[in-house]
Amino acid sequence: MGYPSKTILYLAGSQTFGGQRLLIPLRAMFANLVDRTSLCSKTELSDLVGPETPLPSDIFQLPRPKSESEIKEEWSRAGPRPRPLPPPPERRIYPHEKEGWYGWITETDKEPNPSPRDLRMQAHRLLWDALDYIISVEADAFFPGFNNDGSGWPDFSGLVMGQRLYERASSRTYRPDRKTIAALFDITRGNMYHPKHDWTLSVKEHLNKSLSEEGLIRQSLLSKPNSFLSHPLPECSCRISSLELTKQTEGKDGRVLYGD
């Protein structure tokens, strides 16, 4: 995209899928990659959350060990003789194996009620998302990591792009086509870190087109039918009289996509 390596990048999102391991190539190219944990101190984040009552410690309890009589009873109820040797002792269960959704998915069929600690973490994520939202809206440029997942629900990137379009339509908001980006990455899969010059030019050309009218029209066709907030044009745009009237671009249903 033509940005120098000293550009400050802010990574928005309460959770990074894949962890910090996937960010190693990006940090190698842009050393000034920050997020809310590195941009804000612990005191500032705690002030954002506010005072909270302490919760009881969530102590993980190991399952009760079987007594000698229970082991003998299971051995006597086993299959016909000759019997194989008894199985080795069970592996130790660590506390981190029972955290999150994967802690109950192998034990019960229904999701248990969230604990007070889970509810508090969800509230914290909402506050962190609000902080990321404000920074993303006010940023000089915004590149969506994931949007238009097909679920029909508004997503973080779509809401940010809609807010930036409403407040400052001239701001640099990239609207890439994920299918085109995936095809470009498949081309350079064998040499990902040193792509050819023509491949780099193709990526820059696609991203520059996403900043222009082509990106606005495609975003209007894809996002607006699902979420009006992701593309609030032309209903929420202020129109002024001008000598040069832009040509209207209409969709198949006669709806105005771009222009006055």
Rank of each mutant, 00 (worst) to 15 (best):
residue 36 R to G: 01
residue 92 R to C: 13
residue 45 L to E: 07
residue 25 P to N: 06
residue 155 D to G: 14
residue 81 R to K: 07
residue 119 L to E: 15
residue 89 P to R: 00
residue 114 P to Y: 06
residue 102 Y to L: 11
residue 147 N to K: 12
residue 72 K to P: 07
residue 72 K to C: 11
residue 156 F to M: 02
residue 68 E to V: 04
residue 100 G to F: 08
residue 64 R to Y: 11
residue 114 P to G: 09
residue 55 L to K: 07
residue 31 A to Y: 00
residue 92 R to H: 11
residue 109 D to Y: 06
residue 143 F to M: 15
residue 66 K to W: 12
residue 32 N to K: 02
residue 28 A to P: 00
residue 90 E to L: 08
residue 90 E to C: 12
residue 108 T to H: 06
residue 119 L to N: 14
residue 153 W to R: 05
residue 36 R to F: 05
residue 115 S to V: 08
residue 135 I to H: 05
residue 47 D to M: 05
residue 80 P to I: 02
residue 112 P to L: 07
residue 49 V to E: 04
residue 135 I to Y: 13
residue 147 N to W: 13
residue 145 G to Q: 10
residue 102 Y to E: 08
residue 138 E to D: 15
residue 86 P to D: 08
residue 146 F to L: 13
residue 20 Q to L: 14
residue 93 I to S: 09
residue 33 L to T: 11
residue 100 G to M: 09
residue 100 G to I: 13
residue 91 R to G: 10
residue 152 G to D: 05
residue 141 A to K: 09
residue 88 P to A: 14
residue 82 P to I: 04
residue 73 E to R: 06
residue 124 H to E: 12
residue 128 W to V: 14
residue 128 W to P: 02
residue 83 R to Q: 15
residue 55 L to W: 02
residue 38 S to E: 06
residue 48 L to Y: 03
residue 128 W to Q: 14
residue 73 E to W: 04
residue 69 S to R: 08
residue 139 A to Q: 10
residue 78 A to E: 09
residue 21 R to P: 00
residue 69 S to I: 10
residue 141 A to Y: 01
residue 36 R to E: 05
residue 32 N to V: 01
residue 157 S to A: 14
residue 31 A to F: 00
residue 151 S to Q: 07
residue 83 R to Y: 10
residue 47 D to L: 09
residue 118 D to M: 14
residue 63 P to W: 03
residue 68 E to N: 07
residue 126 L to N: 10
residue 96 H to Y: 11
residue 148 N to M: 04
residue 136 S to A: 15
residue 39 L to E: 09
residue 31 A to I: 02
residue 124 H to G: 08
residue 122 Q to R: 10
residue 144 P to R: 03
